[in-house]
Design a protein around this nucleic acid. Structure first.
Lengths: 164, 164
DNA sequence: CGAGCCGGTTGCAAATCGAAACCGACTCCC
DNA sequence: GGGAGTCGGTTTCGATTTGCAACCGGCTCG
């Protein structure tokens, strides 16, 4: 139970050491998107802001940090650089399938902010494209075919539980 | 402003060129839990790790940072200090309703890590307590009474959109 | 030609982080 | 009664990261 590991060359908080973190997909996710700016960049890319200058202007992030975060996201396969002009080669950043799959997480973060901080109404509503109805994010049981309240969720160790 | 259309499975055709952070619940959420350690702390509290020393040992976080993050979470109403012994007054940290409501976000982060980084099987499975079936997190349309794929989600400005 | 845009990189001061030492209150054990 | 240990921190200090601003190369436009 005791953390005896001292990673000599950094690698992040829960990189390889902490027993709780070793077998946790949340820690794995945070390795990639555990940075505040990173999440805001992804939010902008989801909204259609894909170019360096646009992102910089919209977020107010320092340019060196933006460059760093973008290349890190590309390295992790969350974004990809797609050229949109050739004479001076200019690329925009697009979501890969892996990046687009983060929508669930961004929706969850947005939902929490909506519920606890949108005192004057929510800034953005997600709706069904076919009927325009506001959507909700839920946990579902495919067997019972019903939504499951948080109190009825149990967690079990899975097959990838670390062998420590 | 709207330049290239993003073909499949993306969120935002609603390219409101508004300054993002001001009118975004994601930014509001990140103000509270936008820190890497903060998320890991909350994950542990969800799992039942509630005492200072337990958290410190499990996470490997520096003590000063743990103290700082915990008090910040208490200030934001995500955690609350509950005494569990009185002679040396010792408190444990429990989730408030607001904190428990973050389960959605943590489940989403876990799900993404499961899908993209659990090469040797997922470390943890969430199951329905009554039937033991593994659960899934989905976006649902209450009107159509069906789950909605990411490609069918549209975003609209809500009533709290900042007056730009 | 000069101005300007775009997408960065470099340099530097300031804030933050991490490891370890220190601390007070209390209990346990001899 | 003294010494060791537990618990929940706070303090200290060096190392890393951040934010800001300046700079740069390629290219277009007037």
């Amino acid at each position: 139970m005791v953390d005896t590991e001292h990673p000599p060359s950094s690698g992040g908080p829960a990189a390889a050491a902490a027993p709780g973190a070793a077998s946790c997909s949340i820690a794995a996710t945070l390795e990639v998107v555990g940075d505040r700016w990173t999440v805001l960049i992804l939010r902008d890319v989801f909204r259609g802001v894909r170019r360096f200058a646009q992102l910089q202007a919209d977020l107010g992030i320092a340019r060196n940090l933006l460059a760093d975060r973008l290349s890190r996201l590309v390295d992790h396969g969350v974004l990809e650089r797609v050229p949109y002009q050739s004479r001076p080669v200019r690329c925009e950043y697009r979501l890969t399938a892996k990046g687009a799959d983060l929508s669930t997480a961004l929706i969850a973060l947005m939902g929490w902010g909506d519920r606890w901080y949108a005192d004057e109404g929510v800034p953005t509503i997600l709706v069904h494209d076919t009927c325009g109805t506001p959507l909700e994010q839920v946990v579902r049981c495919p067997h019972c075919d019903e939504t499951v309240n948080p109190g009825r969720i149990r967690s079990r160790p899975g097959p990838g539980r670390s062998p420590v």
